[in-house]
Design a protein around this nucleic acid. Structure first.
Length: 402
RNA sequence: GGCGAGUUGCCCGAGUGGCCAAAGGGAGCAGACUGUAAAUCUGUCGGCUUAUGCCUACGCAGGUUCGAACCCUGCACUCGCCA
């Protein structure tokens, strides 16, 4: 059983209740692993995936992930990391977010019912009489809640805390009791709420869940963590090509931490990559290529990773044509370079495209086009607009005839 | 409830009557270079049928003025202090 923990330890920050975990893993009973989420718009990235992969390992041993949709608590709003009260969500988007969450989680977790169960916390909260709810509140003191640094900071700053925000950790904690959680694997920012879970379970006569907090890794720009608002994350739903490219764009110093937590490469291999990254020059580049290939392999398989590696080298190192240029058949006539670009990239404004042309970003059959108003022949063309946007043109059947 | 401060482009933030499509920074985009979608440097960064042009924009609605992001009035929201 120690070996299980040892494997988990690679991406673990801390284990609260390690002795219990050892004992439970040894008991032969499948553990119930709480994976609770807030139903805000999900965009799971490699950081989230660290936790999910740990759960996946446990699933492979027969343990059960209980995916808890916090439909009720989302209506309340987690104050974690918020310096101000945040707005509430409407039921429609909550439902949409739930299904999107399931899709993304299924990229890593097994969804076989034997090891995966979906619950919603409205199941117990909707049915709970006020008297009982108040009883719950009686289990937690003001001092316990105020121990939370974020709440204290707000008080000190003279900012307000709405009562529902104060209550949020209480509800999230009680979830652990209601779903009989044995273990939960969360980012360290969730430690406080999950410790309340332990508190409730003990108060209500249940063995407390084990809490594993995981290593947080920086975003692709080197900032503290991956986040949607900073647009510095690698999404689980990103294409293999994007995953590969984004990994190539990380600062050299991040090769080591990324390889450590985002891949399953042997640790001495990771150390080797770190040394190469340190050395700079082409060896740093090669370390990144290996890292990128390892990550892409994990999500898309070795074949896809090999193909992306090759494509990347061909496109960026050898500067030759990428292999997967989309072919476009024009359905209408185009008169000028600008028209042509606009047809190829309909989501960009014409002003932006005009700028690209002026800046020398646009190449037609390897010849730079600098005049937006220049006429083009709608024959077979390969157009590059910017470093990684390529199109191949086939004339439309009608244009061909004329 | 009283008093005060604020609301500017994707984000932060300067601007207090014409020189403002709006300083500066960040993000983004592009070029050069390169070891990569690293780093660095440079440019660009509201939209528009080609533009010493037009349109839209500085919380919302009005007003003053030849002219307003900048002045006045009302409204909405945010924040601070006091009670």
């Amino acid at each position: 059983m120690n070996s299980v923990i040892d494997r988990l330890r690679r991406t673990t920050d801390a284990i609260i209740g390690e002795a219990d975990l050892l004992e439970r893993l040894g008991s032969g009973r499948p553990l119930r692993i709480k994976y609770g989420v807030d139903l805000t718009a999900p965009d799971l990235h490699l950081g989230h995936a660290v936790n999910l992969w740990m759960m996946r390992q446990l699933q492979d041993l027969g343990h059960q992930v209980v995916f808890l949709l916090g439909d009720l608590t989302t209506r309340v709003g987690d104050p974690t990391g918020r310096s101000a009260t945040r707005p509430l969500l409407n039921p429609d988007s909550i439902a949409a977010n739930a299904s999107s969450f399931l899709d993304q989680v299924a990229l890593i977790l097994r969804t076989d019912p034997a090891v995966f169960e979906v619950r919603r916390n409205s199941e117990w909260y909707d049915a709970m009489p006020v008297a009982e709810l108040l009883g719950l509140f009686g289990q937690v003191t003001h001092a316990q809640l105020m121990a939370r640094d974020m709440f204290r900071a707000r008080v000190e700053a003279g900012r307000e805390i709405a009562v529902h925000e104060l209550i949020y950790p209480v509800l999230q904690g009680y979830d652990s009791f209601a779903m009989r959680s044995d273990l939960t694997i969360v980012g360290s920012d969730q430690l406080f709420n999950e410790q309340l879970g332990r508190h409730f379970q003990q108060r209500l006569g249940m063995p407390p869940q084990v809490v594993i907090t995981t290593t947080i890794t920086p975003g692709v720009d080197g900032r503290a963590k991956q986040s949607k608002s900073l647009n510095n994350y690698i999404g689980l739903t990103d294409t293999p090509q994007d995953k590969f490219g984004k990994l190539m764009s990380i600062p050299d110093e991040l090769v080591e931490p990324y390889a450590h937590v985002y891949t399953e490469l042997p640790l001495d291999t990771v150390a080797g990559l770190a040394a190469s990254a340190d050395a700079g020059g082409t060896s740093a580049r090669d370390a990144k290529l290996r890292l990128a290939a390892a990550v892409v392999t994990r999500y898309h398989g070795a074949g896809v990773a090999r193909a992306e590696l090759q494509a990347f080298q061909q496109t960026f190192s050898a500067r030759s044509l990428p292999t997967d240029i989309p072919t476009v058949v024009l359905d209408g006539p185009v008169a000028t370079v600008l028209d042509l670009l606009a047809a190829l990239r309909p989501t960009e404004t014409r002003s932006h495209l005009r700028r690209l042309i002026h800046q020398g970003a646009v190449t037609i059959n390897n010849t730079r086009a600098t005049d937006p108003t220049a006429p083009v022949d709608p024959v077979e063309l390969v157009i590059r607009s910017g470093p990684r946007t390529w199109h191949r043109i086939r004339p439309s059947p009608t244009a061909e005839r004329e």
